[in-house]
Amino acid sequence: MIFRTLTKESLPGFLDTVSGSYRLVVPEQKGRDTYAFRPYSGFHKVAMGFLRTVIPPKQFFFPPREGLFQFTTGAGIETATDEPPSSIIFGLHPCDLHGIDILDRVFSYGERDTFYWRRREKTGFIGLSCLPDKYCLCKSMHTDFIVDIYDLFLYTLDDVYMVSVRTALGDDLVRLRPDLFREPTAGEIAEYKDRIEEREAKFTRIMDITNLADLLTLEYKSDVWERFSQRCLFCGSCVMVCPTCQCFDVFDSTDPLTNTTVRWRRWDACMRKDYALVTGGHNFRGARPERFRFRYLHKEIGFAEMHGKPTCTGCGRCSETCPAGIDMVEVVRSIRE
């Protein structure tokens, strides 16, 4: 890892150059307070102050709906042969980079998921520092900074970005415009340190996750689950916007004219009523409190047992998105009480 600085006036020129060699994806403003990752169409569209997009970056490796193969009598099974483009996603905050790290673990556990990795392997990441709002829980989840996954990371200072160059790909990007980067000065290093402290002070909300896996296990039969499941609409919004939820459903559709069947997979949500329903009619997780509880247990315990850490990245999307106003902090607090 090496550090360089890039002046703020130089960033547009740098991104213009990157977009000439890679498919560049950046955060753009969509609605009044909503943002989305979109293909780069000029620096004026880049929402530098954005905090979170509605849909997390998982969509680029694990699309909401994707065709896996097609089958036609005679031709048999055919899979896509197109090469995904080399891509760079700009503007990833530490929580989203942690989310990608978690999906990497899921999609490489056991048999590698070729559909995820064919895109993931061709994507590089430029991280961007951020300041928390009232939904951010990264500090509580220990995902407020990151030391891997990214290729370049831009820390915003007054006049420049302090740029961490972590990988050879990051170095390749810097070398596209070596004229824009220089060694950090002692003053910039001091400013970088001050900014870390300033950011620390801005976290207003803390979710106490000490011994949370134990508490969730001990409170397995708590009426907290019943209480929250009364409010939950089971719409699955929290799952769709979650950077680490990766459940999917597999189904076929057949074109009646060509008789070609396409096998699809699409995002699924564990709180859906027939999620654990099997042929014959038995539902292993049919009741509302069970379905509500499962998501918390899987995030905090199940995944951690399998992959080594809990899956909540504290990005705040679920709390901001929930139409019933269910806030994870409130759920966890109720379990602790």
């Binding site: 556990y109 990766q246 999917f248 597999v250 997979r265 899987h298 199940g302």
Partner: peptide
Amino acid sequence: ERRMECGLGKCGHCVVGHKYTCI
């Protein structure tokens, strides 16, 4: 027996407690 969509420990449907039935 559980509902399964992938068999590879990824789709999530067969999780019983904290374990993937499929793997």
